[in-house]
Design a protein around this nucleic acid. Structure first.
Lengths: 200, 200, 200, 200
DNA sequence: TATGAATGAGGGTTCATTCAT
DNA sequence: CATGAATGAACCCTCATTCAT
């Protein structure tokens, strides 16, 4: 890789990191491209060499960051050595919720305008080489569970949306209950959902 | 009520109706105050006599429109004469989902930036005199169910967020499944949730 | 007329005059809206209250200025008391050419991107009340000439384009001959054209 | 010619052709250097090895294309074997008008910002070796006509500007008359002009 | 109350030109 | 010779908000 290519990659990284910082601290709407390039220390035109607009860079970041988060959660659950499938899912859920609670900026950034479509795309089409496909890991866990499931993807969809929506409210507004209060409720609900989908 | 007061009320109504039309058709971000006043046929300054800014008028509308929607759903469930509590809840859920599916503009308007906090406020502090307090109706249904429930408000919260989040994805993007496919999944899941909260 | 209306009219006038000055001195392309508003002493937004864009203000100016020029030429020819129709036309032609030679900025402003369509519109649909319809004056001169003409509008078209195009080259570049050298050539040519259209 | 030289020449040709395509289709102002180099498949910097800027390449193209057009017209008139000088001129005029009508992009490209100065330079200083000097051909036709003319260059100037200006309006806007309607008017007018310059 | 002209900061975007490779 | 990433000034335009009438 030549000097130019290195420089190019550095600029791209800088823009991505700076954008992420600003999006998670100020929010997407209040972050202007001027803000980004100023903080990144590049010229305005440079931004447009790498991204179509603000929403382009956002989508790339959402994909990357969600993938990263879920992969971390999966890695953690592997180290935990939970036996049961439902315990694994609850563990991952709690892991993700704790991570988002620790980084509210990330939460509001990932959550806003986020549809299952985008989310799934993020989790299945990793941006970086280092990113892994979370859906594959999910199917692996299903396989290892010893159970058969009907509509496993719908089960995941319902669980994720449930956790996402309630977690958002608890973390951001502590309303109607705090995250710590919410967790047992969610654990129970998610387990119920899973049971509904087991083919006995 | 004098002529001046009537005129004043008429202007307010016009602004609210016009805003709602524009928010649900063009979206909040793409609707400017200029758009609103032009379509409403009032002067720009007049807007500021009634509202602080765009977000002020939006909040009032969300409160009013959600309250209206849930009250309609409740009225419908009363006419249906469902016996079981859980059937009533499922009916209301389906009613609301159908109404939102029929008016995607309303859905995206109500849903965006909508937290449980705003939602609850909307449902419990009616704007108009005609609006009723949905939470009261909920407690009434609980009473009539013949069961005892623990944490009934959390139960409502979890159910609503679940239905809202998954419904949004299905209605707006048909992804991962259509609304009609989603409904039975939701019915079953909501029933499971309710069972979890019954004190036997 | 209230104070506000006076102010409004003054702003419009200032913008028109300033734009004309800049267009004729720097040219259309090199004049930015920023230049205009800065020199006019109004805010940028104000420009957009009165004009759609740069080309809107240009079209209004072209119409007004050409109308003005031709009306002046006509007034002058009346004071001259030429007898013959063709002498009147040659007089008007020379008058206009001299005016444009004295104001090259005006020439390049009026001439560039100017089609007969725009020109005719300018001459027949006066912007100001004070402006008169040159085409009417032309027909009046035809009437008074004592001759009958075939296709009088084509005759005007051909003559005008001829004078405009050759005059532009002579005035702006002195090439291939100076304006003073050009005039007798044009006089003779225009008279030939007129003779071609007289129905004997 | 070495391989390097061939490559160099190929790049130059590609840039000229691409520019011409873009200028005649999108117009000069809307064509950026980025557009040109992208479509030509060369690097941005390469453009500046061959041309000073957009206007440099435009001028070279105008010269080349006008020369080409007039030479073609002359070749055609030779094949026609018209006898009279004025018939030859009218033929050339019609030939050029038809060619421009068939390629409006070329017309607006050649016509805009085109002065007699540029035009004459184009016709007398051929860019390519293949290009011929149209003014020479003109004098040859004068010689062969059997007449003597005063100010033959002014005669050409006046005729060309007349045909150019009226033709532009007819071809581009069909206003005030179509090209086909215009042609007989121009033929008669041009013949009158020629007669004015014959020394009897 | 009601008006709507005026504001001007700030937004996104383009593009000719340079220069290290 | 050729590249193309980087520049950054300059552009047009929007819009929430104010305030004299």
């Amino acid at each position: 890789m030549g000097k130019a290519d290195q420089n190019k990659k550095a600029k791209l990284e800088k823009l991505l990191n700076t954008s992420f910082d600003l999006f998670t601290s100020k929010g997407l709407n209040k972050t202007s491209i001027s803000d980004i390039v100023e903080k990144a220390g590049v010229a305005k035109g440079t931004f447009y060499l790498y991204f179509k607009d603000k929403y382009d860079i956002r989508n790339r970041l959402i994909a990357h960051k969600s993938s990263q988060l879920f992969t971390q959660a999966y890695d953690a659950v592997c180290r935990e050595n939970c036996e049961e499938f439902e315990d694994k899912i609850v563990f991952i859920m709690n892991y993700v919720l704790d991570a988002l609670a620790a980084n509210k900026g990330l939460l509001s950034f990932i959550y806003k305008d986020l549809s299952w479509a985008v989310f799934k795309k993020a989790l299945t089409t990793p941006v970086n080489n280092s990113d892994t496909d979370f859906l594959e890991l999910y199917y692996k866990m299903l396989d290892e569970s010893g159970h058969k499931f009907r509509d496993p993807e719908v089960m995941l969809f319902i669980s994720m949306e449930l956790v996402g929506a309630t977690g958002y409210s608890s973390i951001m507004y502590n309303d109607p209950i705090s995250l710590d209060e919410l967790k047992p409720h969610l654990a129970q609900t998610v387990k119920s959902i899973i049971h509904n989908y087991i083919i006995s």
